[in-house]
């Protein structure tokens, strides 16, 4: 179940959804809601980075290289390096860590466990997962820089949502 394509990603995105609603006062809520945009940007940047890497480099999956390996998952058809799923999850989690340490730590832990499960299942090498974690962290850092560059646009979006009582 942990290795599945559905449990951890949905759990992470639901946490981000919860972040939108859970601030205790207006200042904290604004901080978290702008942070939701940062997290989604980090996830998108991570996926873009994996896409660009895969154009230039395509590594075979462990179960394709080692025939004796017992595969505990379906046979993915995309390249092994880096792990697209873990990179997107790491981007999302690292960005949340930047706005809420406790929640971000839980999300990063879930991402690491997910990565380890995918290594155990035989669909990734440890270096695929490590590189993906690095990509996610860098993407989150860049997303905060983008937020600073684009400010006050994210704040306007939240303010407009507030007019409709959606923020």
């Amino acid at each position: 179940m942990v290795v599945s394509d559905y449990l951890v990603p949905l759990g992470l995105i639901l946490t981000v959804l919860g972040l939108w609603f859970s601030g205790s006062d207006r200042v904290q809520r604004m901080h978290q809601q702008v942070g939701v945009f940062v997290a989604l940007t980090a996830m998108a940047l991570s996926s873009l980075a994996v896409f660009l890497i895969n154009i230039g480099y395509s590594r075979l999956r462990p179960f394709e290289t080692y025939n004796e390996l017992a595969l505990l998952f379906y046979r993915p058809t995309d390249p092994s390096f880096p792990s697209n799923a873990v990179a997107a999850a790491a981007g999302l989690s690292a960005a949340v860590w930047g706005i809420n340490r406790q929640l971000g730590t839980s999300m990063l832990t879930a991402t690491i466990v997910w990565g380890l499960a995918r290594i155990y299942a035989g669909v990734h090498y440890p270096s695929d997962v490590l590189a993906s974690l690095g990509i996610g962290i860098v993407a989150a850092f860049l997303s905060f820089k983008i937020r600073d560059l684009l400010n006050p646009i994210p704040t306007w979006v939240v303010k407009i949502a507030r007019l409709f009582c959606l923020a």
Partner: peptide, 18 residues
């Protein structure tokens, strides 16, 4: 799954944000 889990998550978050 997404509908029910989102609905429930909003309820939990609403209790945290009062």
């Amino acid at each position: 799954l997404t509908f029910v889990s989102s609905f429930v998550t909003i309820q939990i978050a609403a209790t945290l944000g009062r």
